[in-house]
Amino acid sequence: MEDAGVSTGVTKTPAEFLKAIKGKAVLVKLNSGVDYRGILACLDGYMNIAMEQTEVGDWDMRSWEEYVNGQLKNKYGDAFIRGNNVLYISAINKT
């Protein structure tokens, strides 16, 4: 991958990771077990996350999907997630 991308053996701080995944497809998992999948608009140092509906994209991920126990429960255009609920943010492949 590009810029601060995944080059094995290289140190990558959380700040670098956050920079690298902006605009990418991500999986956000909350402590409660709820998952969100979509394109990351922006985030801050508290891991607050802005999820925005995207108009572009080669893939059916223009809105955000909320999964509870693996089942699709909701779709959001825009949404804000408060960072204290976030367990992890993971880059995901478009498969």
């Binding site: 995944v6 956050l18 077990g33 976030v86 367990l87 492949n93």
Partner: peptide
Amino acid sequence: VNMVLEDVTEIEDTPEGKKLTKLDQILLN
């Protein structure tokens, strides 16, 4: 101690037993 982890296995204890999830790269809160 937020951490960037690679080649991750997440292990969850569920009533059905251990559930494993593989992830390429994550930022762990």
